[in-house]
Simulated assay, not measured.
Amino acid sequence: MRIFKILNNNAVVVIDGPQEKIVMGKGIAFQKRKNDIIQKQNIEKIFLLHDNSSEKFQQLLATLPEEHIELAEKVISYAEGYLNSPLNDHIHIALTDHLSFALERLEQGFPIQNKLTNEIKLLYKKEYEIGLWAKEEIKKEIGVEIPLDEVAHIALHIHTAKLGGLSMSESLERATILREFIERVEMKLNLTIEESSINYQRLMTHLRFALNRIDQGSEFEPMDVDMMELIKIKYERAFETSKEIAKYLQEEYSVDLPETEIAYISLHLQRLIQK
């Protein structure tokens, strides 16, 4: 392969037959010029991005700090190994751009906030664990301590890059639904839910599986008729709260929870009331 354009010390554009490719490797462009040969043993990654993606990626590689690019690639490689699955090629653009901007903000003293961190942590557990690994790697490599809110941002990028996964907007909507559910429970029941509590964890897990069933078109768990009536009478406040929030989710997000599911959620709310 011959170099067509040098992007940085570790990335070049090559023309391979009729195709333009981005080739990366540690020091692959060191003391190289256009038309020089790239040895195959020095190549670590090859990208063949379509549409305007190739141009966008080239711009990132040519303008962003090389240490930020290397960190993003390390996180992506670790994520693919940890998930045992390749990620969509666009993660190389999305995560690299995001991570570099986040690191620049932190180095300049600007805070990073993410009001959906707890929901992302529960919804996308493996991806959040990858974000925690990235947090340690970034601290080790460049001495920057990223907050847990940034860990959640990284997790969301990884999740949306999974092949066949939800889009970024769908993933954010899923986390927003959970956040709004909790906020409305706190408001209507006049209580504060401790996010570290077992009751919070149980409720969030139940809601997560409920949303998955809706996405997949799966059947909800049935409930005995007598049990249903008992919940409506004995836990009236919890049931009415659950029903009212379910109505809101249906109107705002087209999330249609059947009455049996509303009753099961009421049991979780009753635990919060009793506590």
Rank of each mutant, 00 (worst) to 15 (best):
K26S: 09
F239T: 08
F181H: 06
P222K: 14
L203F: 02
E73P: 02
S254I: 04
A62Q: 11
R105W: 02
K121G: 01
L87F: 05
T96D: 02
G17N: 08
L211K: 11
P65D: 05
E180H: 12
L207K: 11
A152Y: 00
E244V: 00
I214L: 12
L122M: 15
K243S: 06
R208W: 01
Q39A: 05
I146C: 01
N52Q: 14
R105E: 02
L211W: 11
K232C: 03
I193P: 07
K188W: 11
L60E: 08
G27M: 09
Y248H: 08
R237I: 12
I193M: 09
Q39S: 12
L230P: 00
E251H: 12
Y200D: 12
Q59M: 11
L203W: 04
E240H: 08
Q113I: 06
E20P: 03
Q19V: 05
P65L: 14
K234T: 13
E259D: 08
F101G: 04
K26G: 03
S197T: 09
N88T: 12
N199H: 07
E136C: 08
E67I: 15
E221H: 13
M227S: 13
A11V: 03
R213L: 08
V185G: 09
N52V: 14
K135F: 02
S77F: 09
K32W: 06
A246E: 04
E66P: 00
K162L: 14
G25I: 08
E251D: 05
A246M: 13
N190D: 14
V185L: 10
E104W: 10
L48W: 04
P147R: 14
M24A: 02
P147L: 13
L178M: 10
I112L: 07
A94R: 07
K56E: 05
N212L: 15
I231L: 04
H68L: 11
A175I: 15
L95H: 07
S218V: 00
I69L: 08
R179I: 09
E73Y: 15
A134I: 07
N114P: 02
Y253G: 05
N10H: 10
P222I: 15
L191R: 09
Y128W: 14
Q274Y: 14
H90F: 12
T260K: 02
T160Q: 14
E55I: 13
P111S: 04
S100C: 07
S54D: 11
M1V: 09
E104A: 06
L267N: 09
L203A: 03
F57P: 00
P258E: 11
E261P: 06
E66A: 08
N8P: 04
R213C: 01
L116D: 01
N84E: 14
G217V: 05
Y200L: 11
L172F: 10
S197W: 11
V144R: 07
L156V: 00
Q270G: 01
Q58E: 15
A29C: 02
A102L: 07
I177Q: 03
V75P: 06
D226G: 01
N8L: 12
S54Y: 09
F4H: 10
